[in-house]
């Protein structure tokens, strides 16, 4: 269980409160108007922003002060998910060993992950030589190699075309279900939330509300969300 216990986040004069629990293996979307604090919330979970009060815990263990890389999670950003000067294989390798000390078994694992994501032919290429979709798949493959129980997606596929995006979401859904990951996804597309996440956190008016079933939330949104959804 991922718990945000009376969390208060401050950035300049912006404040966001959250008191939320997410079940192990669940998939949850975060939606809300621009600037409401969706990414801020994700940054705090990922460890890039220290909360001014409250605790973040995973399976009862307090991770509030853990360094980002030491948390039981992987994160995919909208871009800059790969180091452009390293090969795809090396980028994936970083998911297994941050020191890039890879055993033969590690190499097999990487080859398997590349195969799973259809990137076998691109192992020795560098990211700039790949298409956007291929880059996204490589980044996703790495999060699987990292084998962390939580996956955070910060509008990860927003730059992709609709078909490619839904393909990526399907792939992500399949892989995360297989691996029983707890997934949290920031999105600005209600359809993504509806398709991918049973539950959704609405972030409005400085509060991250506890997750509600996505279908009912979208069907009868609270007033602050209604304007954003344009319903």
């Amino acid at each position: 269980m991922l718990t945000l216990d009376n969390l208060i986040l401050r950035q300049n004069d912006f404040t966001l409160r959250a008191n939320i629990s997410l079940a192990h293996g669940s998939s949850t979307a975060i939606i809300g108007p621009s600037g409401a604090g969706k990414s801020t919330l994700l940054s705090a979970i990922a460890g890039f922003l220290a909360p001014s009060a409250g605790r973040i815990s995973w399976q009862g263990q307090d991770i509030t002060t853990c360094a980002p890389g030491k948390r039981p999670l992987s994160i995919l950003f909208q871009d800059q998910n790969l180091f452009p000067h390293l090969t795809i294989a090396q980028n994936l390798g970083l998911g297994l060993s941050p020191r890039l000390r890879l055993s033969d078994k590690d190499r097999d694992t990487i080859a398997q992950a590349l195969a799973d994501t259809g990137l076998t032919a691109y192992a020795q290429r560098k990211p700039p030589q790949l298409s956007g979709g291929q880059q996204s798949r490589a980044a996703l493959a790495r999060t699987l190699l990292r084998n962390k129980p939580i996956l955070l997606l910060d509008e990860a596929f927003a730059a992709l075309g609709p078909a490619l995006k839904s393909e990526m979401l399907d792939l992500t859904g399949k892989l995360t279900t297989d691996a029983k990951l707890t997934t949290v996804m920031v999105t600005h597309d209600p359809d993504d939330a509806a398709a991918f996440c049973p539950n959704t956190i609405a972030v409005t008016d400085g509060v991250a509300h506890p997750p509600c079933p996505t279908q009912s939330l979208l069907a009868s949104p609270p007033p602050a969300l209604r304007a954003y959804l344009g319903a």
């Binding site: 990922a46 360094a67 980002p68 890389g69 800059q80 180091f83 000067h85 941050p98 890039l100």
Partner: peptide, 25 residues
């Protein structure tokens, strides 16, 4: 600005980070 978050999220630090990110970049 470009790669600190990525490096931190992958737990790249110390000599490794110097070798694979800082020095090459």
């Amino acid at each position: 600005m470009d790669y600190d978050r990525l490096a931190a999220s992958l737990d790249l630090h110390g000599i490794t980070r110097l070798r694979y990110v800082t020095v090459p970049r």
